[in-house]
């Protein structure tokens, strides 16, 4: 096994990891702050992809403007969902069960809405011309677009870190996530903050859908397929832990990239196997402090 192959697999795994992270980051953010496991997160990914298609391929907006619009659109949809529906079940007895049903119902509804508006055929948008090619580092090839995805992923990770650690809003969020009532009594506008976080996270979902539109298939049903993958990532990293999502994505991306060289027949079980190991030895995930739960 030569170095080029290893390098190529490493970079391939890194690219996968960043795509995974972009979806999972929003999921874990909602979980960490709003304390909701948003099964419909994949549907915001789907909306992002279709919004980007509508903006770029139909309305002829530039690519990056389209990606921005798609993220904002998905975020707006998320705020609506939070404001009109999710908000009504906070604190209800047996909330978790209702959360599952509510977010699951949005998967079904949004899937049909997408089908009604855009039909069932596959949609495509083109990458910006400047990003169509690839770099060559010796034998190893790396698509330019993938590099952009990695940069966006890192930017999101850093941006979120800065937002949570360095801003007043971030401080409020940390307060809310550790004790909602206390934060509220200290004058934090909790309902507003929750809406904003939900919007931000679904905008991240939309962003990941939009930037994956040129390299994946835009079709109804694509949302539900990313949700289990993202779930695995956040469970491995530690539910609600932002950096955990990054670590989880890197682990899954690289395990898959190298695993397929040795056990190509078992690729679909890799992520489950990693998850099983993590759950058996560290049920709270890699980055959750021991004993923090319960």
């Amino acid at each position: 096994m030569d170095g080029n192959l290893l390098a190529a697999q490493f970079i391939g795994g890194l690219t996968s990891a960043m795509s995974l992270f972009l979806v999972a980051s929003g999921l874990t953010l909602i979980f960490g702050v709003v304390n909701v496991f948003n099964f419909a997160h994949g549907s915001f990914y789907l909306l992002g992809a279709y919004f980007a298609y509508q903006a770029v391929a139909v309305s002829g907006v530039g690519f990056w403007a389209g990606v921005l619009l798609a993220s904002l659109g998905a975020g707006a949809a998320g705020v609506l969902m939070e404001y009109f529906f999710l908000r009504r079940i906070y604190g209800r007895a047996g909330e978790a069960g209702f959360q599952i049903l509510l977010t699951y119902s949005f998967i079904l509804i949004l899937d049909d809405v997408v089908k009604m508006i855009w039909g069932t055929d596959y949609k495509s948008i083109s990458k910006p011309v400047a990003l169509a090619g690839s770099f060559s580092l010796g034998e190893v090839t790396m698509p330019r677009y993938d590099l952009v995805v990695i940069v966006i992923g890192l930017a999101v990770a850093f941006g979120m870190w800065a937002a949570i650690r360095k801003t007043r809003f971030g401080r409020n969020l940390r307060a809310i996530s550790s004790n909602r009532e206390m934060a509220s009594s200290l004058g934090v506008n909790v309902p507003l903050a929750l809406s904003l976080v939900f919007g931000l996270a679904t905008a991240l979902g939309g962003l990941s859908g939009a930037i994956s539109a040129p390299v994946r298939t835009v079709t109804p049903g694509a949302g539900i397929e990313v949700i289990i993958g993202s779930l695995i990532v956040v469970v491995i990293g530690g539910l609600g832990n932002f950096w955990g999502a990054l670590v989880g994505a890197l682990v899954i991306g690289e395990v898959t990239a190298f695993g397929i060289l040795f056990l190509p027949q078992w690729a679909i079980l890799f992520s489950y196997a990693v998850m099983a190991l993590v759950l058996i030895f560290r049920p709270e995930g890699l980055l959750m402090k021991r004993g923090a739960v319960r």
Partner: peptide, 22 residues
């Protein structure tokens, strides 16, 4: 010379592609 079996509807084939090229 090689085989790869990603899951049905796999969204991301990047690591498979690099393995195929090698």
């Amino acid at each position: 010379v090689g085989q790869a079996w990603p899951k049905l509807f796999e969204p991301d084939y990047t690591p498979y592609i690099t393995a195929i090229l090698s």
